[in-house]
């Protein structure tokens, strides 16, 4: 029989707090090097200017502990809880919420969460959206992903016809990016979830955005090819950094997939701006 490991709520609170503060001010090296590579190959002057400003912004944000973007996002948290873990000293979900609450207070992050109808701000950026999965093991893995509203607004879930196939999926992805144009702050990262049910495809798309930028799908060569081909087509659209024109419209396309119903082909395209913040910790 496995030995149960105890993890106190306080550690969860501190870990979540520290993660959100860090990713809000410190752009990951995966994103930064993708932007740096793009700046080398961008051929429009305004496009290069925009990419250079993104690099400069990352330096200032880190040095001065300032949020990279004023939209410090909806707090999305992916948690993998080992089945041999016993959470002590409180309520697990509330601990995650408390960690988010403290991060947005102590890190001077913007509180962007409101009642959908009255639009009254909740005041502390909670509730966070928490996706919990029970996995083997005795650790808790936490991925923090503050998600900006502008790029989220350019995302959608659709039910394609099964006959659409890979070509139809690719066309849909590229069309979504074309229609979004300058709105989601390109260069963007495109998360795609294929299959499952409508809500599962959305979850796969969101999870795909937590992958390191440009890292191909390693489970299925059909998907890594789709990622590569969709990226090439997207970067031929000409939208460019900030929509000012150029070849850098996306830094990456990340696709995740699972089987679905014989009648259906759910596809979610979740767009992420260039401030692609994500970070993880294991307790």
């Amino acid at each position: 029989m496995n030995i149960i490991r105890e993890i106190p709520c306080d550690r969860i609170i501190d870990t979540v707090r520290d993660l959100f503060i860090r990713v809000s001010t410190d752009l990951g090296d995966d994103v930064l090097s993708a932007v740096q590579r793009a700046a080398q190959s961008e051929d429009t002057e305004l496009g290069r200017y925009a990419l250079e400003k993104i690099i400069e912004n990352a330096k200032v944000a880190k040095n001065e502990s300032l949020p990279l973007c004023q939209d410090t996002g909806l707090a999305v948290v992916f948690v993998e809880v080992g089945q041999d873990v016993h959470v002590t000293g409180g309520n697990f979900s509330e601990a995650v919420q408390e960690g988010v609450r403290r991060a947005y207070r102590d890190g001077f992050l913007r509180k962007s969460i409101c009642d959908p109808i009255s639009r009254a701000n909740t005041g502390d950026n909670t509730p966070a959206v928490i996706h919990t999965e029970i996995v083997p093991g005795d650790t808790i893995r936490i991925i923090a992903m503050p998600k900006g509203g502008g790029s989220e607004n350019m995302s959608s879930s659709v039910m394609l016809l099964p006959s659409a196939g890979l070509e139809g999926i690719k066309k849909h992805i590229v069309d979504m990016v074309r229609k979004a144009g300058p709105n989601p702050c390109p260069p963007i990262l495109v998360g795609v979830g294929i299959g499952g049910s409508i809500e599962k495809s959305a979850l796969l798309a969101k999870k795909a955005l937590s992958r390191r930028v440009g890292e191909p799908n390693s489970s299925d060569t059909r998907l890594s090819e789709l990622e590569r081909e969709a990226l090439t087509e997207i970067n031929s659209l000409g939208i460019g950094p900030q929509g000012y024109g150029g070849r850098t419209t996306a830094l990456g396309v990340h696709v995740e997939m699972m089987p679905c119903h014989i009648a259906s082909l759910p596809v979610t395209v979740n767009i992420q701006c260039h401030v692609a913040r994500h970070g993880e910790a294991v307790i």
Partner: peptide, 13 residues
């Protein structure tokens, strides 16, 4: 006017 999105630390100055 367009202001650049996502470079808000820089603009703060």
């Amino acid at each position: 006017f367009g202001a650049m999105g996502g470079v808000a630390a820089l603009m703060s100055a």
